[in-house]
């Protein structure tokens, strides 16, 4: 479409002198102008995301092992392998465990923090906000490096400072397959609760205090006001927070890699879907199968995001 429009100015073949005269240039702006502005984005986007995304779909129906090898069409083979692949299944269970566990714990914690931070006349509010935001701004690798010390069985903070005083035995957080995912979830809670609390704060800020005051006049107690006013009005924020939590959770990669190693640790108990994609495509160079895993991750993210939006009545609200 751009090429067609681009011929437009040249049709006004004005004599050379006309250009030097200061005339109000094109009160009707050239048709190609908007494309000039959006072109850089769409060129980069198309070359480095759009085309690879389509190519990835195609590749997922091929078998290609190695960088300079040729691909052979194998139909749905990659996907049928995927369905019966115990390692993929393990990655799926682990990642879903993380997503569900972290979201279910982070959301109520974050909302509670946000409500506390909204306390009228709170001193040190900026200090609190900054402190809670900080973990999210730190590289996942750095966070994992620190948390290896938190979870260390012999010398870790968790065992020595929390479990030992309670008379509990030391747990092999990063060596015992049962505790690897809980460790990663704890790390996730530490890193992302504050950020979500700040999101909820913005959502709470946008609520009209008049409604709350009216409810107080009508004799509604704090819990009733929270249940029937605050929560429903907060729904757009909740939809946003949950959607981003789902997207983030199913892409989890850096933290478990640095915490338990690329393979996912003992019994691969910390293997996430993206770690399996990485191993398949970039360590084993099984490119076709890697593309299929990439599509599986994407499908899961899209379906879960849409499902939760639907469950929260997001689409119903938009149509009215």
């Amino acid at each position: 479409m751009g090429a067609l429009a681009r011929t437009m100015p040249s049709t006004t073949d004005a004599p050379a002198g006309a250009h030097t005269a200061r005339r109000p240039r094109s009160r009707v702006r050239p048709r190609w102008t908007p494309y000039f502005f959006i072109a850089p984005f769409f060129v980069l986007f198309g070359v480095f995301f759009g085309l690879p995304t389509l190519r990835s779909l195609q590749l997922s129906f091929y078998t290609e092992r190695g960088v300079d090898t040729s691909a052979t069409f194998s139909g749905l083979d990659n996907y049928t392998t995927l369905v019966g692949d115990p390692t993929f299944y393990k990655g799926l269970v682990n990642t879903s465990y993380y997503a569900l566990g972290s979201i279910l714990i982070i959301l109520p914690l974050a909302l509670s923090l946000a409500l506390l931070l909204r306390t009228r006349g709170l001193l040190l509010r900026e200090f609190f906000r900054l402190s809670f935001f900080l973990p999210n701004a730190i590289s996942g690798i750095v966070v994992a490096i620190v948390f290896r010390l938190v979870f260390d069985q012999e010398y870790g903070l968790l065992n020595n400072w929390l479990l030992a005083p309670l008379g509990l035995p030391k747990i092999a957080w990063l060596a015992d397959p049962t505790f690897i995912m809980p460790s990663i979830i704890l790390l996730g809670i530490w890193q992302f609760t504050g950020l979500n609390a700040l999101y909820f704060m913005v959502g709470l800020q946008n609520q009209d205090p008049g409604i709350h005051e009216a409810a107080i006049v009508d004799g509604a107690g704090p819990w009733q006001r929270f249940r029937y006013i605050t929560l429903p009005l907060l729904r757009p924020t909740t939809v946003f927070v949950v959607t981003f939590a789902i997207i983030g959770s199913y892409q989890l990669f850096a933290q478990p890699v640095a915490l338990v190693g690329e393979g996912g640790g003992p019994d691969r108990a910390g293997l996430t879907l993206t770690m399996y994609l990485y191993e398949t495509a970039f360590t084993n160079l099984d490119l076709g199968y890697g593309a299929a895993i990439g599509y599986a991750i994407t499908l899961i993210i899209v379906v879960l995001s849409v499902l939760q939006m639907w469950a929260q009545g997001f689409f119903r609200k938009e149509s009215t």
Partner: peptide, 25 residues
């Protein structure tokens, strides 16, 4: 075009990762 752009916000890099790597090669 704008809706296409917004829709891609939910797509993870993982979907394009392997061909993007091949492109780099």
């Amino acid at each position: 075009l704008f809706v296409v752009l917004l829709a891609t916000l939910t797509l993870p890099l993982q979907v394009a990762l392997v061909p993007l790597f091949q492109m780099m090669v």
